[in-house]
Amino acid sequence: MRWIRLLMAMLSAKFKKKLIGTETVSKSFRVWITDIDVSVMNHAAIMTVLETGRIDLMVRSNFFKVASKNKWFFPSQAISIQFYRPLKIFQKAQILTRISYVDEKWIYVEQKIERKGKIIAACIVKNTIKKGRETIPTSEIMKALKIEKVPTFKYDLIKTCELENIQMNEKLVDKWDS
Rank of each mutant, 00 (worst) to 15 (best):
M1C: 03
W3I: 13
I4V: 14
R5H: 05
L7G: 14
A9W: 04
L11I: 15
K18R: 14
K18F: 02
L19N: 08
I20R: 15
T22H: 08
E23V: 02
K27Q: 10
K27T: 11
F29V: 02
F29D: 03
R30I: 07
R30G: 03
T34Y: 12
D35R: 00
V38A: 09
H43T: 15
A44K: 14
A45T: 04
M47T: 13
M47R: 05
L50C: 08
L50N: 00
L50V: 06
E51K: 06
T52R: 00
G53E: 07
G53F: 10
M58L: 15
S61L: 01
F64M: 13
K65V: 01
K69G: 01
K69P: 02
N70D: 07
K71C: 05
S76L: 12
S76K: 09
Q77N: 08
A78Y: 06
A78M: 07
A78E: 10
I81H: 03
I81T: 10
I81C: 06
Y84K: 15
R85W: 05
R85V: 08
K88Q: 08
K88N: 11
I89Y: 15
F90K: 00
A93S: 10
Q94C: 14
I95L: 05
I95E: 00
I95Q: 07
I95G: 06
T97I: 01
I99D: 02
Y101N: 01
Y101E: 08
Y101W: 05
D103G: 07
K105C: 05
W106D: 03
W106P: 01
I107N: 02
K112H: 05
K112G: 01
K116T: 10
I119Y: 07
A122E: 15
C123G: 07
C123L: 07
I124P: 01
V125F: 01
K126A: 11
I129D: 03
K130D: 04
K130I: 09
K131W: 08
G132R: 05
T135H: 12
P137A: 06
E140L: 03
A144C: 09
L145S: 02
L145D: 00
K149F: 08
T152M: 10
F153D: 14
I158F: 09
K159Y: 10
C161L: 15
C161H: 11
L163P: 12
I166M: 01
Q167N: 13
M168W: 06
N169R: 08
E170W: 11
E170T: 11
K171W: 10
L172K: 13
L172G: 08
W176H: 09
